[in-house]
Amino acid sequence: MTAATHTEIYRPFRGALAPSRWAFWPLYRAQMAIATKRKLPLFILFFGPAMTGIVVSFLAYLSFQIEESGSGGPLLSGAGLAAQFAAQLLEVHKLIIQAMTAARYFAVLAMAWYGAGLICDDRRAGAHLLYFSRPLTRFDYMLAHFATAFTFGCFAVLGPGLLICTVATFNSPNFIFLTEKWPVIVGTIGYSLAFVTVLSALILAVSALSKRKSYALAAVFGVFMSTLALGGAMAALMRERQWRMLSLVSHFERVADWWIGSSRSIFRWDPWWSVAVLGGLTLVSFAIVAWRVRRMEVVA
């Protein structure tokens, strides 16, 4: 190391720095940069969603191509064509539902891995002391961390969904997937964003309550698996499917049924109950994060 500490001249900053509404942005970028520095976890965690998106997109592409190549025979009547298109669209619709179901589990893994340590690691290392001695509000801090978890969730869920919808749109004759099945596209986007929002809030809350990333990771999976097991067990014991409302996964599935249009017969409760449960969970999670971030000054 070369020390040149005796000759430099202290230059006080004389300018004015305007308060920024985007104060969270540098912290968000830094978090993303740190998270993406290690390539192996990135590859492992996003290989699944990427392959899901690619394979299902290819299947969607094939379903339109096969039908088109099959039209080399006798010309179909108008009604026949309409029936063929309807079958194609239904096939792609089912593929999207399958993809979203598969992506959900990858998303939990990826978001938990990248989100679980966000707040607890900061607190453990004292990094928040560097942030809060700068023009960064507690809200900016929470927003930056939320945006980080949210981004990884979007990569895992929204990315494959959008890819499949895009491929289906551009490969469907006359863009009929867009014109006829636009509610599926809207539903896919809406469901993905809702799923990622709820999960991001939950993971941040768990991170804010945990001492270490490993504890937070275990807690996130614990919440998912324990509610799933409890809901399933109670439903089996009581012979009443409504007990599945205890399961967080079931609520996500119910919302997916409602918005994307998969008709799972086992969930018969009003989907607004699921929206209320997930919304309530999100609000409680945000409240916990706000409380814990505010308390960072106490435990500092």
Partner: peptide, 29 residues
């Protein structure tokens, strides 16, 4: 004002330059 805390506080996966630069960005530079 500038604050140098007693705690470790620095992200291990960033370089020294990245840490200080990112914290300067938080200042609004």
């Amino acid at each position: 004002a500038g604050f140098c805390p007693q705690q470790e506080a620095l992200y291990e996966d960033m370089t020294g330059l990245e840490v200080v630069r990112f914290l300067m960005r938080l200042h609004g530079f």
